[in-house]
Each structure stands twice: as C-alpha cells, then as structure tokens.
C-alpha cells in the first residue's frame, strides 16, 4: 500500500517539473490586464472561427516582461510549452505582447510560414497593430491583427479541423484516457493484493510521454516578425 501511495505522490509531483514558460489554456491569455472580458471574448471568437474552419490554432499572450530570455526566445519556448498547432501540421500562431518592454512578436508555426512569411506579418503589424499599440488602444490593435491574420489563414491555408478530438488525458504527463487509467489502476491494485505488495520489490517501468492540454503538439521554428511600440 505504501508503494501505491508513493506512486500516486509521484504522479502529483510530476507536472510541476515542466518549466517556467506559461502553458496557455485558451486563445487569449492576458497577464497584465489590458483587456476587458468582452474584448477577450471578441478576440477569442475570431480565433475559434479560424480553428473551426482550418484547424489552425491562434493564441494571444500579454505578459509584463520576457526577461531574462528576451522576446524571441520567450516566444519560441512558450509556443513549444503550449504546443500551439496540431502535431505534425505545426499550424499554430502566437501573438505576444510584452507590456513593460514595449515589444511585440508574432511567432508563426512551421506549417503557416508558407502563407505568412515574415515580411507579410511585419506589414500587417505595421498597418493595423503597431499604430494602435502606440496609442494604447490594445484591444483594437490585437483584434485587427488577429482578424487580418485569421482571414489570410482561412482564405489561403486551406487546412481542415481535426475530425477526432485530440485526446484529453485526465492526469498530465500520463498519456492515458479515463478508461485506460481505470484498467491500469484495477490491474495495479489486483497485482498488489495478490502479491501482498511484493511486486514493488522489482524495479518497475516509469511512464513517459507528454501530457495533453487544450492545444495540440505543434512547434515553430522562429518564423514571424517582431518590433517595438
């Protein structure tokens, strides 16, 4: 029984090892508080529409600062930690604003680089994003940029949303669905009872794999554009 307790404790501890980068749960994450709830809802409805039509996952993150990494590295690491975009298609996109540093960056996943080359993203940002940020009109800027990029993705990317829902694992770091987990627990308990716990004297295999979140497993390669405001 003690071994089972240890096992359960190790499951509980594992998720905290993942890292210091924010794992985004939904389309808009505002750590600074620049946006009202209705505004967040508006922006999210654009992202949701893009996802429904093409499967591409857009996310917006507002942070206070990106030190010590700098905005480029921070964007890549956050992108990776969240896994924006579907695995294999890498069709994610992250709009990152670092409020106190006055920096922005749009990080484009590998799969979207074709329709959104750096120069195009930069031009979109210069037209309908940076001018608003300069005037402290954050909602207008973010909404316009999200809409402009979303339109391009819908018109030109031509992907399809995933038909099957991406599996959602109840326990992070343990890639098992509920029913699979149940079977494992039943076997585990049965074996423990039958051997009176002696089974744990043998070293047992440790589970590997990454946990599932709201987003897929996409990656970016540093494509996109950045600037000051």
């Amino acid at each position: 029984m003690r071994a089972l307790t240890l096992f359960l404790i190790s499951i509980l501890i594992l998720p905290s090892v993942i890292g210091d980068y924010p794992v985004l749960e939904y389309y808009v994450t505002d750590q600074v508080g620049l946006l009202f709830d209705e505004e967040i809802y508006d922006i999210e409805s654009v992202c949701s529409e893009v996802y429904k039509r093409t499967g591409a996952e857009m996310a917006i993150l507002i942070v206070n600062e990106t030190q010590p990494d700098g905005i480029d590295l921070f964007a890549v690491r956050t992108f990776e930690a969240t896994g924006l975009g579907q695995e294999g298609k890498d069709n994610g996109l992250l709009i990152l604003i670092s409020y106190s540093e006055g920096l922005w960056r749009v990080e484009v996943g590998y799969g979207l680089e074709g329709v959104l080359p750096d120069a195009r993203v930069n031009r979109l940002a210069m037209e309908g994003f940076v001018p608003y940020l300069n005037a402290s009109m954050y909602y207008e800027g973010i909404y316009d940029l999200t809409l402009a990029i979303g339109r391009i993705i819908i018109d030109e990317y031509g992907g399809e949303p995933p038909k099957v829902k991406e599996p959602w694992y109840p326990i992070p770091c343990l890639p098992l669905l509920w029913w699979q987990l149940l079977i494992v627990v039943v076997i585990f308990v049965a074996v423990s009872v039958l051997t009176k716990g002696r089974v744990f004297l043998f070293p047992f295999w440790i589970f590997g794999g990454r946990g599932g979140g709201g987003f897929g497993g996409g990656r970016s390669g540093g494509g996109g554009a950045r600037g000051r405001f």
């Binding site: 480029d72 080359p117 750096d118 120069a119 031009r123 390669g221 540093g222």
Partner: peptide, 23 residues
C-alpha cells in the same frame, strides 16, 4: 520602401530561425 523593409525583415527572421534551430 517596401522592397527594402521586406528583405530586412526576412533577414532578421532568418537570423532568428538560425538561433532557434541552433538552440
């Protein structure tokens, strides 16, 4: 000048991509 700024942005983007892949 759009042609120039586009190329500079691409160039900076390439630098960043190299940094990322190297990392």
């Amino acid at each position: 000048i759009e042609a120039v700024s586009d190329l500079i942005v691409e160039l900076e983007g390439t630098e960043n991509r190299i940094t990322v892949e190297r990392m």
